[in-house]
């Protein structure tokens, strides 16, 4: 297999005229990072709430929370994304749907991708939060209640702080997954990193250079996220507490 390498192509001015092809790629990189961080924030908040609901006494709330988790876990990400992007605007009241369709396409795509990734990931975060809470010794809840805390205070001061510390390692891999899953947004035309990679192939006809560069950027994200989460893990370590129960 003979292939003519032309790495310098990345530094040539791009078809848009205002930057180089490398510039395109970095713009995609920024979109990927912004999208993933926004979706992660949403997933943490939603997933935290749903995870807590799964553990509270009373069938109704925990049942609803369980249904939420099953819904977002058992439909492929791509189907969910297309549903947010193509289906939702049709089902909204016509005025809303039209308003949505008239906004800037980039914003539409970004919004759909962010909401999709947020909900998708929140179901996984919720499962981690639940298992974290379940893995606490049962007596912790009783100890909180026995001191006169309300159930909400017991969660707030006793159970959640410890459960969240316990689940930092599994959350790390969910955080990494958000970045990886964000590449699916390329299918609705959002020009994030993977989409820019494909676009570069079309424009430069040098597929390997652009794919290698994109792949390296994803690996770079990985390294940063892992280092960041390791820092979080160190910061939240509980002295004298040996993992597990």
């Amino acid at each position: 297999m003979s292939y003519a390498w032309h790495w310098e192509v990345l530094l040539q001015p791009a078809a848009s005229g205002d930057t180089t092809y490398l510039g395109w790629m970095l713009a995609g990189f920024e979109t990927t990072v912004a999208l993933s961080l926004a979706a992660w924030l949403m997933a943490l908040l939603l997933g935290g709430m749903v995870g807590v609901l799964r553990t509270v006494p009373g069938r109704l709330w925990s049942g609803l929370a369980a249904a939420y988790v099953e819904l977002f876990r058992n439909v492929p990400l791509l189907v969910q994304l297309f549903s947010w992007y193509f289906v939702l605007p049709e089902l909204l009241p016509p005025a809303w749907g039209d308003a949505y369709k008239q906004t800037n396409p980039f914003l539409q795509q970004f919004f759909a991708a962010c909401v999709c990734l947020g909900f998708f990931t929140s179901a996984r975060v919720a499962e981690q939060v639940r298992s974290g809470i379940d893995s606490l010794p049962r007596g912790q809840k009783n100890a909180g209640l026995a001191l006169g805390f309300t159930l909400a205070q017991t969660y707030r001061y006793v159970m959640l702080p410890m459960a969240l510390r316990l689940i930092v390692p599994p959350l790390t891999s969910e955080f990494l997954n958000v970045f990886k899953n964000s590449a699916v947004a390329s299918t609705i035309g959002l020009l994030e990193l993977a989409a820019q990679g494909r676009q570069l192939v079309d424009y430069t006809a040098q597929p390997f250079e652009s794919f290698i560069a994109v792949t390296l950027l994803y690996m770079l994200i990985n390294v940063f996220v892992m280092a960041g989460m390791r820092w979080v893990e160190r910061k939240t370590r509980v002295p004298g507490y040996i993992g597990g129960k």
Partner: peptide, 25 residues
């Protein structure tokens, strides 16, 4: 670690790019 750090979409794009070339050559 390589495969686990790249999005599946990217892996698929890679294979759609490479496999045909390999098979051809």
């Amino acid at each position: 670690n390589l495969f686990r750090s790249i999005p599946l979409v990217m892996v698929l794009l890679w294979f759609f790019l490479i496999v045909p070339r390999l098979l051809e050559s």
